[in-house]
Computed example of a mutant assay.
Amino acid sequence: MNGGAPRSPDGRFRNTEAFEPRGLADVLRWQWQARREQQAAAQPTPTQAADLDFLARNRGGALAPAATWLGHATVLAQFGGVNLLTDPHCSHRASPFTFSGPQRAQPPAIAPERMPPIDLVLVSHNHYDHLDVTTVQALARQAGGPPLFVVPLGLKRWFARRGIAEVVELDWWQTERLRGVEVTLTPVRHWSSRTLGDRMASLWGGFAVLAPDMHLYFGGDTGYSPSNFIDTRAHFAERQSAANGGGFDLALLPIGAYEPRWFMAPQHVNPEESVRIHGELGAKRSLGIHWGTFKLTNEPLDEPPRKLAEMLQAAGLTEQDFSVTAIGETLRLPPRTSKALP
């Protein structure tokens, strides 16, 4: 379970299960289907003004562990004495080009220059909707110095070419520590590529972030793989016993970009699978991300929350277990408590 990511004979990374990224013929078939089945959202993605005053005063969770959805897979989490940002993307397009590619349906809740000082940035993989060069460069220029970027194996070189040196690479199950906060890269089912020639050349993953006041899980981008999430729960079982405060206090799980299933299932979960992951992780609470921002797949932008509500009802769960928020909304959480003796 803890041996790191497998590789193919040519050194490229692989998933724990058989996985082959879709070829050109499948992409063209999907695009043809998407044009025929195009559906517009009935409602815009809900947004609200971010509470910048609270976020500034809540440096590192000083007032309460908190998570603010900025859009897509970008979340500002404050706990453990650090301000943490996931998959930084605040640009208008998720594309290598400024003139074409998926456009942001709603602006990011906070532009990089208005964010509180970011201490730690987690990058799950190198796809354009999860790693944006303009946002990364803005974070690296923030007042007070750049944050620490924690990335999967093979991505440090990408940052170095852009003059960013505060980067740590991790293999699956490896851990980095920053001021008492532990960050572990965990397996998920996905893939990587930014150019025609670098497919699977860098790793991908989720993150488990453990601090005294909160345990956070960030799923990044993933298809459903029961072994990955069951293994993640088992890996932290001792640290998350009932005496030690229980499971993940908050899991950030993708719920969008899932249709059509014949094309997307290997790489993107749907809401039903996200609810299953919530249970397999043993999370106390989950927040749905990776929806409502970029039109990447066939389902309308506003469908994932509706499907999530249906799946929660079928599973006997409520919004107190797994919910969504407006872009810009802050979810405040009670501090984690441990019953273990010192």
Rank of each mutant, 00 (worst) to 15 (best):
F229H: 15
E299Y: 04
I255Q: 10
W262F: 07
F248K: 02
A237L: 02
L252A: 07
G282E: 06
G197M: 12
F229L: 09
S225T: 11
E280I: 02
T195E: 13
E273P: 01
K295C: 13
T297I: 10
G220P: 03
M264D: 08
F248E: 00
T297K: 09
S193C: 14
H278K: 10
S274Y: 03
F263I: 09
R276I: 07
G292L: 06
A265N: 10
P212C: 02
G282N: 06
G219P: 03
G282P: 02
H235T: 13
G256V: 15
M214P: 01
R276A: 13
H235W: 13
S225G: 11
G292M: 09
S286D: 03
H268T: 04
E259G: 05
D198F: 04
E259A: 15
G246M: 04
G292V: 08
P254S: 12
A283T: 08
W191V: 13
G206E: 06
G256K: 14
N270M: 13
L250A: 02
E259V: 14
P226R: 15
R239F: 00
I230D: 14
G246Q: 05
W262Y: 04
G279S: 10
G219W: 03
E272G: 13
V275F: 04
P260I: 05
V269L: 09
A251G: 04
Y224M: 14
F248T: 00
R285F: 06
G292I: 04
L250V: 00
A242K: 11
A211V: 00
S227I: 09
A234W: 10
G206I: 05
L296P: 06
A211Q: 00
H290L: 14
R194V: 11
L250S: 01
T195D: 12
F218D: 08
P212T: 01
S274A: 15
F294I: 05
Y224E: 12
G219V: 03
E272R: 14
T232E: 11
V209W: 00
E259S: 14
D221S: 15
L287Y: 02
G247L: 01
S274T: 12
R285A: 06
H215D: 11
